[in-house]
């Protein structure tokens, strides 16, 4: 079972690696942009899966961290910080602190309260970003200069940002699954299944959940930072709660708590939205009811089709 899901992941990564070359040669280079979009979504969704799939904590405020990562890049560049590694460190620190504070508050409760509170704090982040008049406010901000890696443009559209994103994707994939199988991940899953049992064993459910929340927030900020660098534009739209909803959709469509769910879900959703959009500009008229239908009638997600038996949480 495990080998099959590894095979699926390996196959996808290999395809993603050769995709730009193939697309270029066949004159469909514009699709490369879509692939990058899907990969960036997958990174954020993988982080969210740590919360929702492994931890059983449904967050509707995850896109706030994506927004934070993007704005750290924009504001950092405006302040004259150009090294992408420095910007990354700042993004991780800011997102981590925001997650620590809001997570500690949200985790004072559980279940639906957690969902509502993450939603509210996410919205707070969104409105804060829209009120940054100096950085474009509602309209967002075009980045006239981009971050560099010690002066090189490798992490830019002019360089090899596609490969950088792919590398981060693979690293995130590896990290999230490594965490899932670690001591920490085991406790997190135990707390999801039966928090009282985990506490009676001697684990502080709160601490483990909060740690997961912080890790997930930090990873999402990396996705945000790269999104800004790739779009060469930031906007509060990145942090809307609808974007958080999209990430949840990706997870459920791909298969919650499964090895490749976030990856498959992101590729599928981006492709589906693009395809629907090509048929009908008002594609949400189809997409919305489709979503309702998936929830009502389909279970297990794409992952269970490609690698049956691995869709179970945390396997």
């Amino acid at each position: 079972m495990r080998d099959r899901s590894l095979l699926v992941a390996g196959g996808i990564f290999a395809l993603l690696l050769i995709a730009p070359g193939v697309l270029d040669a066949t004159g469909q280079a514009y699709l490369t942009g879509l692939l990058m979009k899907a990969m960036l979504l997958a990174i954020a969704a993988m982080a969210l899966d740590l919360l929702v799939g492994q931890g059983g904590m449904i967050s509707l405020g995850h896109s706030a961290f994506v927004g934070i990562g993007a704005y750290v890049l924009a504001i950092g560049l405006a302040a004259g910080i150009e090294n992408i590694l420095v910007l990354l460190a700042i993004a991780l620190a800011v997102a981590g602190s925001f997650a620590l504070v809001t997570g500690a508050l949200a985790l004072r409760t559980s279940g639906v309260y957690f969902l509502m509170i993450t939603l509210a704090f996410g919205q707070m982040a969104y409105f804060t970003l829209t009120s940054l008049a100096a950085y474009g406010g509602d309209d967002g901000l075009t980045l006239w200069s981009l971050a560099t890696l010690f002066g090189s443009n490798v992490a830019q559209n002019a360089g090899h940002i596609y490969l950088v994103i792919l590398a981060v994707l693979v690293a995130t994939w590896w990290l999230v699954h490594r965490i899932g199988q670690s001591r920490f991940g085991r406790v997190l899953r135990a707390a999801r299944d039966n928090p009282e049992r985990a506490a009676v064993m001697g684990f502080s459910v709160f601490r483990y959940r909060l740690t997961a929340y912080v890790i997930a927030g930090m990873i999402a900020s990396v996705a945000g930072l790269l999104t800004a660098q790739q779009n060469e534009f930031v906007s509060p739209a990145l942090a809307t709660w609808q974007h958080s909803g999209d990430l949840l959709v990706i997870l459920v469509v791909g298969g919650l708590g499964s090895r490749n769910g976030a990856l498959l879900g992101a590729l599928f959703i981006v492709a589906a939205q693009e395809a629907l959009g090509a048929v009908l500009p008002e594609w949400r008229l189809i997409y919305g009811p489709l979503l309702v239908g998936v929830v009502l009638f389909a279970k297990g997600g794409l992952n269970s089709l490609l690698a049956p038996g691995t869709a179970g949480p945390g396997r």
Partner: peptide
């Protein structure tokens, strides 16, 4: 400690 994140438990 169970705050260990890498080694498979």
């Amino acid at each position: 400690s169970s705050m260990r994140f890498f080694r498979p438990a």
